[in-house]
Amino acid sequence: MPRVRTTVDGVTYEGEVEARLLLTHYLRDRLGKVGTPIGCDTSNCGACTVLLDGMSVKSCTMLAVQADGSEITTIEGLDGQAAASANGEAAGHPVQKAFREFHALQCGYCTPGMIMAAVDLLRDNPDPSDTEIREGLEGNLCRCTGYVNIVRAVQSAAAELRGTPS
């Protein structure tokens, strides 16, 4: 069986995998990274989006062996230290905090993928228009929110990341 060496959320893993193992199953079943959900299994919904060497990919649409030598960030590793801060307020990446603050979710199933896609979008375009946000997230489906609060959250996170709070 092929060997795979990856760094996932800052930790290096090495081992044999079946060639047919999907990256999403590797993350969830082998590494326990169940923060990355499987949504549609048809490459449409984007719920399983992770960052591969900094760029968004649908982890159901890659083999684990293809990630050999790569650095992967899942929703679980997005915030370097996910511990609660001193005042009890939960920590998090600015996009995670904005999703919470703007209630950019209802059932929450699409949220990990939506957040990872938003992080990738803001890396590429730190000051997007509403239309650019909607286009940047076109590979991520949310069946609850109507996207309005998601766009607001991404705008707010963009402002915070730029250092100009809205």
Partner: peptide, 26 residues
């Protein structure tokens, strides 16, 4: 042949394709 895999992976997953071997060009 596996290039970007964005068409092949969905076909493999749905078992619309089940090749004996894959040559990965990525």
């Amino acid at each position: 042949v596996l290039a970007g895999g964005q068409s092949l992976l969905p076909l493999l997953r749905l078992r619309l394709a089940y090749p004996e071997a894959i040559v990965d060009l990525t």
